[in-house]
């Protein structure tokens, strides 16, 4: 119980850091993409205009947390699982909770997107159903909510029965639930449609695995040097693959979207979309630098099970990841130009 309590004291700041970073990124992005109201046309309520990006970013963070927490047993490794049981039990419970937050955020986002499309004083259930029937993004949110609820169910089963629910299954369901929104997102240009859709899906999967994995490892294992010594090298391999995938797919999608209507330099520096892409690239550079430092400076000490400044560096990395997720939410909704 005392061990659980020490990990609990570590648990709070990283979550706050990630959510705080994500909200800050969203707000920056919103300010950048602020458009003048169009004369004569009813605007959606301020609650919807500002609330929707906030809900979307909370949805993303909950999704990332669910993926990371279900990855944790895999990173810890089968032969260490009995030793790690106290930590893993906490991870399973947190994973069930984050899956539920994910599902609820998807439902709220669905209602808010209905209100965004049909501005008015209220949203009727019929209007929500109509939105789902008509718009792909509505169907996607329904699928996300359903898959997140399945994830919640699996999470509850795992809380009750331990690893009899294989963590690989929970991870697969959580990763699968990330996809519907990427498919219906607008960041898929008419040119190279199939390729850019798949590229965007890979981007989302890699970003979630990377951010979630780092969060889970740092939050739950920082106080357990023996477990950290096996989990961190595995995570480091995963992170290297993920950063490469995130970089390649992100640059590809950015180029496709930016060069659709105008020259690259013009779009990159002249539009809010371009500036957001540049901001995300900066985040990626920072993340790579911090990741490299963790891998080559801190990892050897972690392997010797020495005291390290891992928590501080990982916190910085989580904050930057949060910012990138926040920019991403605005980017997914902003028009180019």
């Amino acid at each position: 119980m005392t061990r659980a309590r020490t990990t609990a004291s570590f648990r709070f700041p990283p979550v706050t850091v990630l959510v705080g970073g994500a909200l800050a990124g969203t707000l920056c992005g919103l300010v950048l993409t602020l458009a003048a109201p169009v004369p004569g046309v009813t605007e959606p309520d301020a609650v919807v205009r500002y609330g929707l990006p906030v809900v979307r970013v909370l949805l993303d963070v909950a999704a990332v947390a669910t993926v990371g927490l279900s990855l944790l047993p895999i990173l810890v490794g089968q032969h260490r699982r009995t030793r790690a049981e106290a930590v893993l039990a906490g991870a399973r419970r947190a994973g069930a909770v984050s899956a539920l937050v994910w599902a609820v955020c998807a439902l709220v986002a669905l209602v808010m997107q209905t209100a965004e499309v049909k501005p008015g004083p209220g949203v009727s259930p019929a209007a929500v159903l109509d939105y789902v029937a008509r718009v792909g993004a509505g169907k996607a949110l329904v699928f996300v909510a359903a898959l997140a609820l399945v994830s919640f169910g699996l999470g509850l089963a795992a809380v009750k029965t331990g690893d009899r629910v294989p963590p690989e299954l929970r991870t697969a369901v959580a990763l699968f639930a990330l996809l519907p929104m990427a498919v219906t997102g607008h960041a898929t240009s008419a040119r190279w449609q199939d390729l850019s859709t798949i590229s965007l899906e890979l981007h989302v999967l890699a970003a979630a695995g990377w951010t979630g994995g780092l969060g889970a490892v740092v939050v739950l294992l920082a106080a357990h040097r023996a477990l950290l010594a096996t989990a961190l090298p595995r995570f480091s391999t995963l992170a290297t693959v993920c950063i490469a995938v995130v970089a390649v797919t992100g640059v590809f999608n950015g180029l496709v979207e930016l060069t659709a209507a105008r020259s690259l330099t013009d779009a990159l520096f002249g539009t809010a979309y371009g500036v957001l892409v540049l901001l995300k690239l900066t985040c990626l550079g920072l993340l790579a630098a911090v990741g490299a430092r963790i891998r080559w400076r801190l990892l050897p000490a972690v392997l010797r099970q020495q005291r390290t400044a891992l928590a501080t560096w990982a916190m910085l990395e989580l904050a930057v990841m949060g910012l990138a997720i926040g920019f991403g939410v605005v980017l997914a909704r902003a028009p180019v130009g």
Partner: peptide
């Protein structure tokens, strides 16, 4: 498995 799922997912998508 997740990557295979991607291919099945690739339906027409539209831009702004």
């Amino acid at each position: 498995v997740a990557c295979l799922a991607l291919v099945g997912h690739a339906t027409p998508a539209f831009a702004h």
